[in-house]
Write a protein that binds this DNA or RNA. Structure first.
Length: 473
RNA sequence: GGCCCCAUCGUCUAGAGGCCUAGGACACCACCCUCUCAAGGUGGAGGCACGGGUUCGAAUCCCGUUGGGGCUACCA
């Protein structure tokens, strides 16, 4: 694709709901093509349907793309602001006879379809020479014979018999242009060279081509129809049915670079098996012609894997920088005053190597800041009350911790020797201490955590645990 | 129903007629490492939808079947 013409692509979402990962993948592929050709990436908001478009969704699209690092060179354009352009095209299409006015109602059309047993509009108004105007839609006069071929970069040539294409509406009876017209007019106006979009648009492409030709002798762009992303039931991802909004993943603590990497691999892969790709490598190596033809399942498990890898690859200071929004929001189980940044920093490296999303961080450090401090009854029961030695271990540790050097090696040695008294392995001995001080049988390494928690809190919590244990006896 | 697209482990994929006894990754299982949990390491199980061709030779090419999907609006 190292052409002499300037490559211009566009991402053209409709602002009718959450911006989902399928749209992000389409945007990414467009963006990669633009970047690898030193071309331009345009953002165009397809809001010709005023009833369904809302500003909040446009905002969501813009925010999500920015967050992902998919930058646009021109736009965002809004089709709702470009009516003059469409009207001009409509005037020309009326003048050259490619469209005609139609006042059939849906009911009438359906009744005739039922009677004829053939689908599609029957061309009732084709030769009635109705005067175009309010209350009448405009339909495109599709040739009765011949074929329209879509030359598709990922699918090859796809042929449509014109006889199977109905005379479709391009302008509503209220004068608003329809998507299929607006897209063509805009793509021509914006000199788009590559139309890269999801496969669901393939059936309307011959219509677009017909309009294209009707508008004059204008070279067609290259088309590329990407396989759709599907859910576990292998249905096209839908913003209504599937919770896959890009912003949700951001809020859950996924890294944009991990999402980009994963999305890039959904439908394309380098042939040497590499999976961790930098954006630079994607730009260099991605090929539209190599994109797969079949639908791909958006597998959150696999995304998790990539996210974990990317989190672990972060430099320590970068990790805490990215973590901050997730530990200083108002959903966290501690107050601003209770939070101690230094304590978090001290444990951060240990957290970094065991999480898959940044949203998991609070759970790992709530034992430090959360107050009052609560231990689940069942957990307490299992780790401390289960047998006699539970409390004994707590007592022994309590007295040894009181005047030990409070560092992880000495603390560990103490627990090992306590374990020897009771003939228990360290893995068993640590459990009651862990639950008493950290509130959970699983979590960060114990001794490092105790050091950061501090001697006084550790002793106090062990005292509390002993007290509760004695009371419940 | 009509038009169109698609078909390699459960999932994402490598594979452009001999390099395929089909490779990698996620998930799964086992073991190792280990203060818990992870992470990491090693190993394992698991696939060319089916049937016909073409060819000396087919996961790869052709046809059909089956299965899945998309579209079928005065939505995009």
């Amino acid at each position: 694709m190292t052409t002499t013409t300037n490559v211009r692509v566009r991402f053209a979402p409709s602002p009718t709901g959450f911006f989902h990962v399928g749209g992000a993948r389409t945007a990414l592929y467009n963006w990669l093509v633009a970047r690898q050709n030193n071309g331009s990436f345009l953002l165009r908001i397809e809001d010709t349907d005023r009833d369904r478009s809302e500003d909040q969704w446009t905002e969501g699209i813009v925010n999500a793309l920015s967050w992902l690092g998919i930058t646009w060179d021109e736009g965002p354009f809004h089709q709702s602001e470009r009516h003059a352009l469409y009207n001009d095209a409509i005037t020309r299409l009326i003048a050259n006879g490619h469209v005609y006015a139609c006042n059939c109602t849906r009911e009438e059309i359906d009744a005739r379809i039922k009677a004829r047993q053939t689908p599609g509009y029957d061309g009732f108004c084709r030769d009635r020479n109705l005067e175009p105007g309010p209350g009448k839609a405009l339909r495109f006069r599709v040739p009765d014979s011949g074929t329209t071929t879509v030359h598709d970069l990922v699918r090859g040539d796809v042929e449509f018999a014109n006889s199977t294409i109905e005379d479709f509406v391009i302008v509503k009876s209220n004068g608003d242009p329809l998507y299929v017209l607006a897209v063509v007019v805009d793509d021509i106006d914006m000199a788009i060279t590559h139309v890269i979009r999801a496969e669901e648009h393939l059936p309307t492409t011959p219509k677009a081509i017909l309009i294209w030709h009707a508008l004059g002798d204008i070279p067609l762009p290259a088309f590329a129809h990407l396989p759709v992303l599907v859910n576990e039931k292998r249905q096209k991802l839908s913003k209504r049915r599937d919770r896959v909004a890009v912003e949700d993943y951001r809020d859950l603590g996924y890294l944009p670079e991990a999402i980009i990497n994963y999305l890039c691999l959904l439908g394309w892969a380098p042939n040497d098996g590499r999976e961790l790709l930098t954006v630079e490598e994607m730009i260099l190596e991605f090929r539209l012609e190599e994109v797969n033809k079949s639908p791909a399942f958006f597998d959150e498990k696999r995304l998790d894997h990539f996210n974990g890898l990317y989190i672990r690859a972060l430099a320590a200071d970068e990790f805490v920088r990215r973590a901050m929004p997730f530990i200083s929001n108002d959903q966290v189980p501690w107050t601003k005053n209770q939070f101690d940044q230094e304590q978090f920093f001290a444990l951060a490296p240990l957290i970094q190597e065991r999480i898959t999303t940044l949203g998991e961080i609070p759970n790992y450090i709530k034992f430090l800041f959360s107050d009052p401090y609560v231990i689940e009854e069942a957990v307490f029961e299992k780790a401390i009350l289960k047998d006699e030695t539970g409390v004994e271990i707590l007592r022994a540790a309590r007295s040894a911790f009181a005047d030990a050097a409070f560092d992880h090696e000495p603390l560990k040695d103490i627990l090992i020797s306590i374990g020897e008294q009771f003939d228990k392995k360290l893995s068993k001995t640590q459990a009651p201490i862990r639950v008493a001080t950290m509130g959970s049988p699983v979590g960060l390494p114990l001794f490092e955590s105790l050091v950061v928690l501090g001697r006084s809190k550790v002793l106090a919590r062990i005292d509390d645990a002993i007290l509760i244990a004695e009371r419940s006896r």
